[in-house]
């Protein structure tokens, strides 16, 4: 029982104290779990790789994976609840007020300053996924051309057509399974 409580607390704390999304949470989760002997350093690396390779929010994936490895389904439930609960509590409180003051000049001005930063975050996300997908070896001579082609074609399809992005993701997975086996 105390183990479950501790597991819940580790993930709750991680969810509560991280701003800026999943990747920022990973060092925290790793430190806590490895330091307490719940996980070896090698397992922690696997946790990151698998959370990136599976769909869904990165931090939720990492929490479910770590919780499952530690204590099966109950562990997965406890860890996932722990990481999601801070979001739920904080967002429900903020939402109550935010949509009421969304049009107030102070809120609008402040948001006008945050929104360009969010755009910069998206750009930096683009650069990092481009690097790991198209330039996995970080060398201009090792461009993964098939992946680059998929990226360009899909970008155009997403911008110029109304085809569902979800469908396009599934299709690119199918193309990968057929043509990009290695």
């Amino acid at each position: 029982m105390t183990d479950y409580l501790l597991l819940f607390w580790i993930f709750f704390k991680t969810g509560l104290f991280t701003i800026g999304g999943g990747m920022a949470m990973i060092p925290l989760i790793q430190q806590e779990l490895v330091a307490r002997g719940y996980m070896t350093a090698a397992e922690a690396v696997d946790m990151v790789a698998i959370s990136q390779m599976t769909p869904g929010p990165f931090a939720v994936n990492a929490a479910t994976f770590a919780g499952y490895n530690l204590a099966g389904i109950p562990g997965a439930v406890v860890a996932t609840l722990g990481i999601v609960l801070p979001s739920i509590i904080i967002c429900l409180i903020v939402a109550r007020f935010f949509f009421r003051f969304q049009e107030s000049p102070v809120v609008k001005s402040t948001l006008s300053g945050i929104k360009p930063v969010v755009l910069a975050l998206i750009l930096s996300g683009l650069v990092s996924v481009f690097r790991s997908a198209v330039l996995p070896e970080l060398s201009i001579t090792a461009i993964d051309f098939p992946v680059l082609l998929i990226a360009i074609v899909l970008s155009l399809l997403m911008l110029k057509t109304k085809i569902s992005p979800a469908l396009l993701i599934l299709l690119s997975g199918a193309v990968g399974a057929v043509f990009l086996r290695s």
């Binding site: 390779m53 929104k115 360009p116 969010v118 755009l119 998206i122 750009l123 996300g125 683009l126 996924v129 481009f130 790991s132 997908a133 198209v134 993964d144 098939p146 992946v147 680059l148 082609l149 998929i150 990226a151 360009i152 074609v153 899909l154 970008s155 399809l157 997403m158 911008l159 992005p165 396009l168 993701i169 690119s172 997975g173 199918a174 193309v175 990968g176 399974a177 057929v178 043509f179 990009l180 086996r181 290695s182």
Partner: peptide, 29 residues
Amino acid sequence: YVRGILRGVSGAVVALFVSTLYKMSKKNV
């Protein structure tokens, strides 16, 4: 096959970011 799927999907992830960047640019700046 799993590795092939993931390689294909990684191209789609790049496209998702391009599309998000484009859509959000008009609203955010």
